[in-house]
Amino acid sequence: MLHRALFGSLERFTGILIEHHAGHLPLWLASVQVVVATITGAADLWAADVAETLREAGLRVETDLRNEKIGYKVREHALKKVPVQIALGAREADEETVTLRRHGAPETQTMPLSQVVQALVQEAEAPGGA
């Protein structure tokens, strides 16, 4: 008989993963993968649409429609190490685009929603053992 445990203790393995990645877990492990935050109330409906589309694609999404400054929201979600933040203002709502902020990337990027969904879904897939 062989006896084996691969993670060993799942609690311990979780602790090690958190320290190994300094909290910035890869997308497939992140509890909340995307936060959709509004810059203005005018983007609320578009934010709900975006969140719904991402959820339907299988991503773990939260919305932040609070009446707070976007800088405040970004800092708060960054502290919680959410890997992808989407900020939506009046312009994005008009053009039906999204502005994306990745952890560690200096620049934000504005692009069509479909492009974002495709890239994130691919990245969020659990690895299958290379």
Binding site: L2, A5, F7, G8
Partner: peptide, 29 residues
């Protein structure tokens, strides 16, 4: 913290095999 606890979840398994299968099973693990 999580590194040293009193209750934890093991991903535990026992592999019952013949002596001839043993080495191969070790390597698979």
């Amino acid at each position: 913290g999580l590194l040293r606890v009193r209750s934890f979840t093991q991903d535990d398994a026992h592999i019952y095999c013949t002596p001839e299968q043993l080495t191969e099973e070790c390597l698979k693990v």
